[in-house]
Every structure is written in C-alpha cells, then in structure tokens.
Amino acid sequence: MIDWLVAFFLIAGALFMLVAAIGIIRLPDLPTRMHASTKAGAMGAMLIMAAAALSFMEWLAFARGLAIVLFIILTAPIAAHVIGRAGYFVGVPLWHGTIKDELRERYDADTHTLRSAAARPEQDADPDPDSGVRYKPPE
C-alpha cells in the first residue's frame, strides 16, 4: 500500500518536473517561463519530498520533508518575484503577443520610479502628476 503511494508520488513529481522543463524551453518570454518553472518545479519537488517521507516512515523523515516543503513554499515566490522584477527593469523584451502590460505607462525607466493608478496621465485633474497617490480628506 505504502509502496503504491510512494510510486504514485514519485511519478507525479517527476512528471511535474518534466512539464516545468518543457515549459521553460517552449514558452516565449521571461515571465511565461518563470510561470512554468516556479510553480510546476516547486510542485514536483514537494511531491518527491512527500514520497521520500512516506517511504522512510519515520518521524525524522517526516520532519525533514515538511521542512523542505515549507522552505520551497516560502522561497519560490520570492525568487520568482525578484527575478521577474529585475528582468522587467533591465528591459527584457516581452512576447509580441502580450496583451496587458500594466506597468508600461506607469514606470519611468530613466528615473526608476513607478506612478500609481491615481496619477495616470489621462486623468490629468491632479495638478501635480508626479506626486503619486495623495489622500484627499472628504469635505
């Protein structure tokens, strides 16, 4: 019984990692590649750790597997965020089929500043558009 569970988790984890690798080689630009590699890769590592914990059937193995899974859950989003942010700031080109880039009209690459939604250029009622969001108290 345990052997079947271990085999299932192992096959599922290896297939998730293979899907992540296929995604990283097939998808067109940096954010889509990150989307493949971080989520599917982390899922594959977590499933394989579950298989390891089940196959040892000891408290120590469960504790270590849980520690690795928690660590992956904590760090994979942080690493993806940091790399994606650096790639966007450096100016890695997006895919030509990208339909939404919300940062394009708000991010100033020269001054490295980001304006918020309240200070968009088309809503020019704000007398000082560089100042970002300002709270206006209700009258």
Binding site: I24, R33, S37, G41, G44, A52, F56, A61
Partner: peptide
C-alpha cells in the same frame, strides 16, 4: 541573463528532487 537565472533555479529544483529520489533509493535519511 534573467532567462538563464530562471533556468538555473529550475535546475536547482530538479536537483533537489533527484536528491530526494536518491535518498529513497539508497535508504539513507
């Protein structure tokens, strides 16, 4: 360069998986 960093991160994640599989195979915790 960020593409390569993403590939390196995926390689590290796969290596973690390989080490887990090796732990199961050898039985060394």
């Amino acid at each position: 360069l960020p593409d390569r960093v993403v590939a390196l991160e995926l390689i590290a994640s796969i290596v973690v998986g390989i080490i887990g599989v090796h732990a199961i195979e050898t039985g060394v915790l």
